[in-house]
Amino acid sequence: MNRFGLGGGPERSARMTAGLNRIAVRIAPYADPFAAQLLSDLAVWVFAFDDHCDEDFPGLTPTEMLTMVARLQRTIEAPGIPLGEDPFCLALRDIRLRVEALATPVQVRRWVDAMRGYFLAEAGTGAAPTAPGSPQDVSDYLLTRLHSGAALAVPVLLDAIGAALPAPLWEDARIRALTEMAAGIVVVDTDIHSFAKESQRGSRSGNLIALLDGPHRPGPGQGLQAASALRDLIARRFLHLGEQTAKASADPRIQRYLDVLTQYVCGVRDWCAATSRYHPGQPDGDHHQPRGAGAAYGPPDDTPLTPPPIASIAWWWAVDGAPPASP
């Protein structure tokens, strides 16, 4: 953050430095120092960019927002020559070069593609903030939110560090659903913990709790309860499908990847609950011990396995059939 000037002033820098330590080792305690530093720097970049968009560019036109994210995407597609002197481009280029040193060419391409989804989500959020409304608005919100914060880009790096699935397994419907569900749990947990901060700062990106508290909902104050129930529902499906997938295949790489996803979910949840970024009145992380990969998030046993009436994620409950094919 300091080397590339991503802090954006003393107040924002203090918030960044106080709230982001420990996140990398919570989500990937098995990572070596090079990989842990890469994950940590990516987290700093993502949070700095989010704050940058919220506080510095609230009035960008859709064309200006698309141009900005297109430059960032091009930086990781073709990192050989920097695109100007923008600090976020330069810092992201540095991260991209280290991804290439850690991952295979296929994994690099997966990460670049996942980041494209993140940048499109950011461009869409900046152009037209989500407004409260009908249940379809929740579907559209989650469709975008799954990609925001690089929630689907991080598992690519975690796979490169801890599992290394070959292409046929990575593209299997069960693996794709489990990856999306892990990202879904992560972003809903983040929305729950960041709601107070975002409300105070007037974030442009919206929040699931605010959306569920909208004028067409049963009543004010129900958003937190509804968001928690949705998180529990996704988590129960994640655990159920993960158990089915692990039992259906003898390939140890699948179990390793499921452990990676479980650690991702648990690590983000533990970090959200402990960070002073979302809970400024408490010491940063000192009171809360992280859980291991085996300590999967366990929602109530009576949480139903039926899909919610949310079109964009309903397919997670439809995945079934043959086990992932091991090449």
Score class of each variant (00 low, 15 high):
Ala91Cys: 14
Asp86Arg: 06
Glu77Asp: 15
Val112Lys: 02
Glu100Ala: 15
Phe119His: 12
Gly117Ile: 08
Leu120Ser: 09
Arg109Trp: 10
Ala127Met: 04
Ala101Ile: 05
Gly117Pro: 01
Arg71His: 09
Pro82Arg: 11
Leu90Thr: 13
Leu120Lys: 12
Glu122Arg: 00
Asp86Pro: 03
Glu85Ala: 14
Cys89Leu: 13
Arg116Leu: 08
Arg109Phe: 05
Ile95Lys: 12
Val99Met: 06
Val108Asp: 09
Arg96Asp: 11
Asp113Gly: 01
Pro105Gln: 11
Ala121His: 00
Ala103Tyr: 07
Arg110Ile: 01
Leu102Ile: 12
Gly84Phe: 06
Leu72Arg: 12
Arg93Met: 05
Gly124Met: 05
Leu72Ala: 10
Phe88Tyr: 15
Pro82Ile: 06
Arg96Trp: 02
Thr125His: 10
Phe88Val: 04
Pro87Phe: 06
Ala121Pro: 07
Arg110Glu: 07
Thr75Ala: 06
Glu100Lys: 02
Ala101Phe: 07
Pro105Asp: 08
Ala121Phe: 05
Met115Tyr: 08
Gly124His: 12
Gln107His: 08
Trp111Gln: 08
Arg71Phe: 04
Gly126His: 12
Arg93Ser: 12
Ile95His: 14
Met115Phe: 04
Arg96Val: 07
Leu97Val: 10
Asp86Ser: 01
Ala127Cys: 06
Gly80Ser: 12
Cys89Lys: 00
Ala114Ile: 08
Leu97Ile: 09
Cys89Tyr: 02
Leu72Asn: 09
Trp111Asn: 08
Val99Thr: 12
Arg116Pro: 05
Arg116His: 14
Ala91Asp: 15
Trp111Asp: 01
Pro87Val: 00
Gln107Ser: 09
Arg96Leu: 04
Ile76Trp: 03
Thr125Leu: 02
Glu77Phe: 02
Arg93His: 07
Thr104Ala: 11
Gln73Ile: 12
Leu97Ser: 04
Leu83Gln: 08
Arg109Tyr: 03
Leu72Val: 03
Val108Asn: 07
Arg110Asn: 08
Leu97Thr: 11
Arg74Ser: 12
Tyr118Asp: 10
Arg116Ile: 03
Ile76Ala: 03
Gln107Phe: 00
Arg110Ser: 09
Ala123Pro: 00
Pro105Met: 06
Glu122Pro: 03
Leu102Ser: 08
Arg98Ala: 05
Val112Asn: 09
Trp111Val: 03
Ala123Arg: 00
Val112Gly: 05
Leu97His: 13
Glu85Asp: 15
Ile81Arg: 15
Arg74Leu: 09
Thr75Trp: 00
Val106Gln: 15
Met115Trp: 10
Pro79Leu: 06
Glu122Cys: 11
Ala121Ile: 07
Arg109Cys: 07
Glu122Trp: 08
Tyr118Leu: 06
Thr125Gln: 13
Arg93Glu: 02
Leu72Ile: 01
Glu122Thr: 11
Gln73Gly: 11
